[in-house]
């Protein structure tokens, strides 16, 4: 399944970049995150509790960030599995300075899901992913602004 979207953050591009790549941000801003252990440069083990429709449960897996092109774009790879099934995704995140002190974050990725979350909840997955992404970026924005003030 393809997912894509954009979100405009009220902050400078470099600040957004720094914040996005800070592991604390993942810990603080990813909804339902229960565990985050650094296993290498830009690599983490992650446990996250997510509900998609009636399929709720914890996914354990990995997050890897690669192809860093500071402060413009990077690749993100996520995989997780648990009783609700598995999720695998790769995506590209791009940052663009809007020239007015804001930064537009654009994301585009491909997500594969399987097991119960694939068979029962797949049609709700788009809206759930979008909600999680939006929550994440709005939290990032909040964190930057908190730091700035």
């Amino acid at each position: 399944m393809k997912i894509s979207g954009s979100y405009t953050v009220n902050a400078e591009q470099q600040a957004v970049w720094d914040r996005l790549l800070d592991p604390d941000t993942l810990w603080n801003c990813l909804p339902g995150v229960q565990k985050l252990d650094k296993t290498g440069e830009n690599e983490y083990d992650l446990a996250m509790n997510v509900g998609v429709g009636m399929i709720k449960g914890t996914y354990e897996g990995k997050v890897r960030i690669s192809d860093l092109n500071e402060p413009h774009d990077y690749q993100m790879y996520v995989e997780g599995s648990g009783r609700p099934g598995f999720v695998k995704g790769t995506g590209k995140i791009e940052l663009a300075d809007q020239g007015d002190g804001t930064t537009e974050i654009t994301y585009a990725g491909d997500v594969e899901v399987g097991g119960p979350v694939g068979s029962v909840a797949q049609r709700m997955l788009g809206s759930v992913s979008k909600r999680i992404v939006d929550q994440f970026f709005s939290c990032v924005e909040e964190q930057i602004n908190k730091q700035g003030s």
Binding site: E112, V113, G114, G115, P116, G118, S119, V120, Q122, R123
Partner: peptide, 14 residues
Amino acid sequence: YDEGGQLLTGSMMD
């Protein structure tokens, strides 16, 4: 089914 063999109609809602 999707290409990966996931049943897309796995409940009475689908």
